[in-house]
Amino acid sequence: MLSKVAKKMYWFGRYTERTENIARMINVNTHLALDLPRSDHIWGSLISITGLEEDFFDRYSIQNEKNVLKFLLTHHVSSLRNCIRQARENARTTRELLPNEAWEKINDLHIYLEKNSHLGVKRNGRHALLKTIIRRCQELTGYLTGCMSNIGAYHFIKIGRNLERADMTTRILDVGCLNLLNPDHPEIQEHEYILWMNVLVSLAAYQMYRQNVMEGVNGEDVAVFLLKNQHFPRAVSHCLAVVMDCCEELPNNVRAKRSVRHGQSAINACRVSQLLEESRLHWFMDEVQLDLADIHAQVAASWFGYEK
């Protein structure tokens, strides 16, 4: 497979996954806003998750619901609409590899979002919009799982998808921590349960968590589950295991595998209870994100840039 094509498949995987994740995050925050007594500040946390505060404040002065939604749905380069544009562009330029129906699905979603993404800014149109986006992203993922040969191109889609997923899981966990530690809003502490539950729901992890963890919903167990569980598809450990499996199947994989292994041992070694006690979970999430960035760099160096 051409290096250029591998790169496009990888980004296709990342962008479609990112679209679904952003949609989930907005969805959950909307619920949270209805549950919490004072909730305006939670919209700002959506911007912190994506790490785009600077871009946001270039455009808006207040982090209220309307501005945040506009930013995430339609405006910014990392908005839902733009993620799908990028995914479509990567698919359009690799149409010779992607199954036809997959192209049609991404093209349809693109057409849908170009027309409708603004409908999510107000609460009354939001639910339907986000539900449609999530459903269509899942259809696409499901279609690829069912119809694409498990070789080259698909490995790169999976690597992209799982790195993006792991990244988003750490970011959402991080926001949980940040909200709890927010000194301006001590009342959140009383609602800790709701907050962690929403963290789980935003990752579609609530049911799986309940089946797996005997205790109720609390910060430590949620963090352990989302970081270390081997079986839940959105847990960081599981994502890294998938990335590792894909790397195994590819040629010239030594550097990439070393980097994945490094990330895996950091997750295995960490003690969540201690991190929480010392208020260092936020610091640790940053570390994991740096590991993920390194895996990305090694994947790119191994397969995207041609070297003699």
Binding site: M1, L2, S3, K4, A6, G152, P251, N252, Y306
Partner: peptide
């Protein structure tokens, strides 16, 4: 003529 692939 060669093409640049993930295998070299």
């Amino acid at each position: 003529v060669y093409m640049k692939t993930i295998n070299g």
